[in-house]
Simulated scan of single mutants.
Amino acid sequence: MRITVLGGLGAWPTADQGCSGFLVEHGGFRLLIDPGYATLQPLLARVPAARLDAVYVSHGHPDHCADLQPLLRARVLADRSGPPLPVHAPAGSLDRLFALDEAGLVDPAYGWHAFAPGDAFDLGPFAVRTWALPHWVPNAGARFAVGDLVLAYTGDTGPSPELVDLARDADLLIADATYPADVPDRHVGHLSSAAEVGRYAAAAGARQVLLTHLWPGTEPSAAVAAAGRAYDGRVEVARPGLVVRLGS
Rank of each mutant, 00 (worst) to 15 (best):
S193M: 10
F144P: 10
H59F: 00
D182M: 04
H26F: 12
S20R: 05
Y200Q: 05
T157R: 03
L6G: 00
P35L: 07
V188F: 09
S192I: 04
V87P: 06
P84V: 12
E102P: 01
A201C: 01
G104P: 09
P13D: 04
R143M: 02
L68H: 10
W131C: 13
A15I: 02
L149A: 15
L166I: 12
V57R: 00
H113C: 13
W136C: 07
A194I: 00
P240I: 11
R239C: 07
G158P: 12
I174H: 06
D122E: 10
R229N: 07
V24K: 12
A54M: 04
L191V: 14
T14E: 02
R234V: 12
G28T: 03
V55Y: 06
Y37E: 11
Y110G: 03
F22Q: 03
L163H: 14
Q69N: 13
V243S: 01
A132F: 10
T154F: 01
A120C: 05
Y200N: 05
P220W: 10
R2G: 04
S58L: 01
L71C: 00
R73W: 13
T178N: 12
L72W: 10
A170Q: 06
V244T: 13
F98M: 15
I33T: 04
D156W: 02
L94Y: 14
P134C: 13
L133Q: 09
W12D: 01
N139L: 09
L242V: 11
G124Q: 10
D95R: 15
E162D: 15
V128T: 06
L172W: 08
A49F: 04
G8R: 01
H26L: 15
I33C: 09
H59K: 00
A238R: 09
F29S: 00
E162S: 14
L246N: 00
G104R: 10
D148W: 03
A99D: 14
P35M: 08
D232F: 03
Y231G: 11
R245H: 07
P62D: 02
A15F: 06
A167H: 12
G111W: 00
G7E: 08
P138T: 03
T157G: 02
